[in-house]
Simulated scan of single mutants.
Amino acid sequence: MAIARHGSGVRASVGAVASQIHPVFMLPPLAASGFGAVLAGFGAPRLALLHVAVAFCALYTAHVKDGLVDFHHRGEDDDHPLTRRGCHLALAGSTALFFVGVAALALRVDAVAAILALPGWVVAVLHAPHLDTNPFGATLGYPVGIGFALLGGYYVQSRTLSTTALAFAAVFVVVLAGIKVVDDTTDYDYDRSVDKRTVAVVVGRHRARVVAGTLMTAGMVAVVALSVTGVLPRGSAFATLPFLTVAVVARRADAELATMLLVRASYLFFALLVVVAWLRPLAGVAVPDITVLGPYTYLATELLWGAAALGLVVRAGALRAAARTAAVLYPFAYVWDWYTLSVGVFAIPMRTGIDLLGIPLEEHLFMLVVPTMVVGVHETLRELDDSDSTEENA
């Protein structure tokens, strides 16, 4: 029986097998493996190439399996280069090469390196028709595979996992999950017709875009915060700027165009992170030391964030709601704060020294600023959601 559905002979068979190498689909995981190696110092280039090859075999398996299920079983795709037998042979070959590579990782590195490579193949085999029938599997399969590719690439260089590598992997998973949610909205009608429960099918297209925006924003905020605190290389925060710029534009685009924009923005985001991890441009730069304000340090930060919180609630027309929320929470926060200070849970050295009702003045302000900020953010997000919903229904 033939391997290729279109044409015959060796050339047609090789072309059909090679057609399952999709650079757009494969580049991010392979790049994640390389990024993990760079992050670890890239001390063993041959091991890095070995890990990339193993990841490639897992990705090839995933694509062939998806084609087998979507065309030959579900009839979802209009065409496919491989026959059913060709798909099975390609799967057998890629799986055999994958496990040869895993064995090589176990011998040349250790068992942990081999174990970290396995999730990529497991996701590849189970994605269709199992994982892609529920919102978690459909959304997280590909991003989780990329996360493990990064961790594996890092581990084969260092034989350990650092907080930085784990943080980067988590960020990649969250950001790519957001993009995947947007991508799945393009197939909303078909997925709903075959009971494929993607996030869009479960919560609706509008809410899915909200979920996607929340995930991507969380990922970018995490990069900025972890960059400032030094968990990620200093300068990583700058990699978020192009992505956020494109994401703002993509909010108003249809799902197909938004996916194209976000995928390309993610490539630029990851490329900039590689540059930062390789060059460490701000490695010697320390965060600003505001303790030069002496006893007014804590008070100054509260006035800054208090002004931001007040601006949010005024803009959202939620000043009364913020005041009421702060008033209700204040007694509980006051007792909690007084008790924790009394038993020595924490201390506040950079303060004015002014006490009121048994606790520092700054703590009273803190108990007003936090609920005001929460209400301001909540109302601002709700306003954005209502605006998007109005535009979608227009």
Rank of each mutant, 00 (worst) to 15 (best):
residue 227 S to I: 02
residue 228 V to L: 12
residue 228 V to S: 04
residue 228 V to F: 11
residue 228 V to W: 11
residue 229 T to E: 11
residue 230 G to I: 14
residue 231 V to D: 00
residue 232 L to S: 06
residue 236 S to Y: 11
residue 236 S to P: 01
residue 237 A to D: 15
residue 238 F to N: 03
residue 239 A to Q: 07
residue 245 T to N: 04
residue 246 V to N: 00
residue 246 V to S: 00
residue 247 A to Q: 13
residue 249 V to F: 10
residue 249 V to A: 09
residue 250 A to L: 08
residue 251 R to G: 05
residue 251 R to Q: 09
residue 252 R to G: 15
residue 253 A to N: 06
residue 253 A to L: 12
residue 260 M to S: 15
residue 263 V to N: 13
residue 263 V to L: 04
residue 264 R to G: 15
residue 265 A to E: 03
residue 265 A to P: 04
residue 266 S to G: 05
residue 267 Y to Q: 02
residue 268 L to S: 02
residue 269 F to L: 13
residue 269 F to H: 12
residue 270 F to D: 01
residue 270 F to Q: 10
residue 270 F to S: 13
residue 271 A to W: 03
residue 271 A to V: 05
residue 271 A to G: 10
residue 273 L to M: 14
residue 274 V to D: 03
residue 274 V to A: 13
residue 274 V to T: 09
residue 275 V to Q: 04
residue 278 W to I: 02
residue 280 R to W: 12
residue 281 P to T: 02
residue 282 L to K: 06
residue 282 L to F: 14
residue 282 L to T: 03
residue 283 A to W: 03
residue 283 A to Y: 02
residue 283 A to K: 05
residue 283 A to G: 11
residue 285 V to Q: 06
residue 288 P to W: 07
residue 288 P to S: 08
residue 288 P to Q: 10
residue 289 D to L: 09
residue 289 D to C: 08
residue 291 T to W: 04
residue 291 T to L: 07
residue 293 L to Q: 03
residue 294 G to D: 09
residue 294 G to N: 05
residue 294 G to P: 08
residue 296 Y to M: 14
residue 297 T to H: 13
residue 297 T to K: 07
residue 297 T to A: 13
residue 298 Y to F: 15
residue 298 Y to C: 12
residue 299 L to E: 14
residue 299 L to A: 15
residue 299 L to G: 04
residue 300 A to I: 06
residue 303 L to R: 10
residue 304 L to G: 07
residue 305 W to G: 12
residue 306 G to L: 07
residue 306 G to S: 05
residue 306 G to V: 07
residue 307 A to K: 06
residue 307 A to Y: 03
residue 308 A to L: 15
residue 311 G to W: 13
residue 312 L to S: 04
residue 313 V to C: 05
residue 313 V to R: 03
residue 314 V to A: 08
residue 314 V to L: 11
residue 316 A to G: 07
residue 318 A to G: 04
residue 318 A to E: 02
residue 319 L to M: 15
residue 319 L to P: 01
residue 320 R to F: 08
residue 321 A to S: 09
residue 321 A to V: 04
residue 324 R to M: 07
residue 324 R to E: 08
residue 325 T to M: 11
residue 326 A to F: 05
residue 326 A to I: 03
residue 326 A to D: 02
residue 328 V to G: 03
residue 331 P to K: 03
residue 332 F to N: 04
residue 333 A to C: 08
residue 335 V to I: 13
residue 335 V to P: 00
residue 335 V to R: 02
residue 337 D to V: 10
residue 338 W to H: 13
residue 338 W to T: 05
residue 338 W to C: 02
residue 339 Y to E: 06
residue 340 T to L: 10
residue 340 T to S: 06
residue 342 S to N: 09
residue 343 V to W: 14
residue 343 V to E: 10
residue 344 G to Q: 04
residue 345 V to Q: 06
residue 347 A to K: 09
residue 347 A to P: 05
residue 347 A to C: 05
residue 348 I to N: 14
residue 348 I to G: 01
residue 348 I to Q: 14
residue 349 P to G: 00
residue 349 P to S: 02
residue 350 M to T: 11
residue 351 R to W: 05
residue 351 R to F: 03
residue 354 I to P: 11
residue 354 I to A: 14
residue 354 I to T: 13
residue 355 D to F: 13
residue 358 G to M: 09
residue 358 G to F: 10
residue 359 I to Q: 12
residue 361 L to S: 10
residue 361 L to N: 11
